[in-house]
Nucleic acid binder design. Structure first.
Lengths: 118, 118
DNA sequence: CTAAAACCTGACGTCAACGTGAGGTGCAAG
DNA sequence: CTTGCACCTCACGTTGACGTCAGGTTTTAG
């Protein structure tokens, strides 16, 4: 499929897909005319990239980890990286949970104070 | 206390503290010589700001929400904002949990494959 | 009193993940 | 063949939360 199709299916912009390729996160073959041609696997790949980005990983990290995620194999170093990032995400979840609790508390207090009844 | 002390105690940089003041997130009185002087409450304030930043809120949002968080009162609009941001954080937690599960799975697979034994 | 911290105000630099034109090319339809 | 949309490659712009350097002032230790 071509880039517009992939963009539509994956929900990311055309610009973003080109950026992924620039960062070696995503491959494509080219038509004789020079246009990108993606395999169906690309869709999964893009969604994986989005998930990792959403988890706060940078493209530098993602490009290092993508091979193991795809192949299920890794060097000891890569495994270390993986666990490091996994732990970082876990920490982030803790941070977010703390912030959420705080906001929950504030919301409860406000509602309890009867400022608003919804 | 002065800005260096607050920075050391809160763990954020002097530059960041000045930035918070610039964004109306943090107040300070001034010495006759023009140097910032912080009350002890400032420490809690800074940590709250950090928590909200860590939760992905922008300074614009934080400056709107800080009053209700401090006072426990709010207009209906502010309460709406609060719940909106609370829900956004909840979503983010979900995203992170998904990413973490994915990485956990990858790590398990790698370890199971016997590439490494730690 | 003097030197060295610590502080002050601008104001420009940074970094990531794209957005947004500019100017030109590929390709399927009629 | 030509219209027109999708695509191409530069290459500069954007945003947020600061980092950092310059040039000057205040505070504190001795």
């Amino acid at each position: 499929m071509r880039i517009g199709q992939l963009a539509k299916r994956s929900g990311v912009s055309v610009r973003a897909l080109r950026y992924y390729e620039e960062q070696n996160l995503l491959e494509s073959t080219r038509t004789p005319g020079g246009q990108r041609d993606y395999s169906d696997d690309a869709l999964d790949r893009v969604q994986l990239i989005q998930d990792l980005f959403a988890a706060g990983l940078s493209s530098r990290i993602v490009v290092e980890l993508l091979p193991c995620v795809s192949t299920g194999t890794a060097t000891p170093d890569m495994l270390g990286q993986l666990t490091t990032e996994r732990d970082r995400i876990a920490e982030r979840i803790q941070d977010l949970s703390r912030a959420k609790s705080k906001l929950d508390g504030v919301i409860e207090d406000i509602v309890a104070a009867g400022i608003v009844k919804a």
